[in-house]
């Protein structure tokens, strides 16, 4: 049975409709990521599920029960906020205990749950501290700890890593993945605008664009078979190359998409010719930006770091024919 079921959910603020007819079903224990550009409605969707915003129309079901009008605290959800939202005047322990006391749990049960969460997140040494005496990463772990102790059926994360630096973000991402593995029965919904986070963490990804669901699917499915030009451009890093005009028309499409790793770069000959504008050597891969007459943007190709391509060299690009993505004028994929 689905843990979360959204049926034609819409949300308007005044006359502005920010979510349009969203339908979505999330299985128990699944890790689902909402991705999309800024302002597309990710946070709003999450807040609807949490009960912090009211649903304008449609139904929200949690474990088969319609919860549109159920109070947030009664929905069995925990939320980790982007800004942590720790109570600044309470110690770490009190922060975690506050909601549990409210739920009328016994003192020793509260202590047990907090000890367990603190152990899991390695914040045992911080329990007496106030939030302002913690680093960003520690605060984030406390916020996650507070969410865990409530033992929710549904975990909601709103960009939990966006205030952390790159190294810490990587670490915490791994910790969240581990948390998901440990709490196998707990459904998790994770909002991010970072598609790498979504790809690495999620069982399924929901791509939102301007308040609509563009595509729902497993990370690799989205990567291999994007349902629209938007998804093709959003998922994958570096981005898919898009060509319009003659090069696309030859393949019977308005827009032709090809990923950097599906291009072969050669100095001798190939389908498209151009000149190297820039090379980015990352160690494991080298990304070569090639200026061509096909597009005003350079085309990016991934090559092995052992191959030496220099700035200004004339080169040829050849896409793998079976790996081309073809889109029509509306951005929908061309079949067949």
């Amino acid at each position: 049975m689905a843990t979360v079921d959204l049926r034609n959910v819409s949300k308007s603020f005044g006359s502005v409709e920010v979510l349009k007819d969203v339908s979505l079903s999330i299985e128990k224990g699944e890790f689902v990521a909402f991705v999309g550009p800024s302002g597309c409605g990710k946070s709003t969707l999450l807040r609807l599920i949490a009960g912090l915003e009211e649903i304008s129309s449609g139904d929200l079901m949690i474990e088969g029960e319609r919860v549109n009008d159920v109070l947030p605290a009664k929905r069995g959800v925990s939320m980790v906020f982007q800004s942590y939202a720790l109570y600044p005047h309470m110690s770490v322990y009190e922060n975690m205990a506050f909601g549990l006391e409210q739920a009328k749990l016994k003192k020793d049960e509260i202590a047990r749950r907090i000890a367990e969460a603190a152990h899991m997140l390695q914040i045992e040494g911080l329990l007496e501290r106030k939030p302002k005496a913690l680093s960003g990463g520690q605060r984030q772990r406390v916020a996650i700890g507070r969410a865990i102790t409530r033992q929710p059926r549904l975990f909601l994360f709103d960009e939990p890593l966006s205030n952390l630096d790159a190294a810490l973000r990587g670490e915490t991402r791994v910790e969240i993945a581990r948390l998901h593995a440990r709490l196998a029965d707990t459904t998790m919904i994770y909002v991010t605008h970072d598609q790498v986070e979504a790809m690495t963490l999620a069982d399924r990804i929901v791509v939102l664009n301007k308040g609509r669901v563009e595509q729902i699917g497993e990370p690799l499915e989205l990567y291999e078979n994007p349902a629209s030009r938007f998804v093709a451009g959003f998922i994958g890093s570096p981005k898919m190359n898009f060509l319009t005009g003659d090069a696309a028309r030859q393949h019977g499409a308005a827009t032709l998409g090809v990923r950097p790793e599906d291009l072969t770069l050669s100095a001798e000959g190939g389908l498209w010719s151009g000149k190297i504008a820039l090379t980015e050597a990352l160690g494991s891969d080298t990304f070569v930006h090639v200026d061509t007459t096909l597009s005003d943007k350079s085309i990016v190709a991934r090559v092995s770091p052992r191959e030496r391509f220099r700035h200004g060299m004339p080169v040829y690009l050849t896409p793998a024919p079976e790996r081309l993505h073809r889109f029509d004028e509306e951005g929908a994929p061309v079949r067949g």
């Binding site: 947030p72 605290a73 939202a85 739920a103």
Partner: peptide, 18 residues
């Protein structure tokens, strides 16, 4: 006082008086 603290309290089920 930031709004999100009140939202956290709402999720914790804390009533208005408390």
């Amino acid at each position: 006082i930031p709004d999100d603290i009140y939202e956290a309290a709402r999720l914790d089920g804390v009533g208005p008086v408390r």
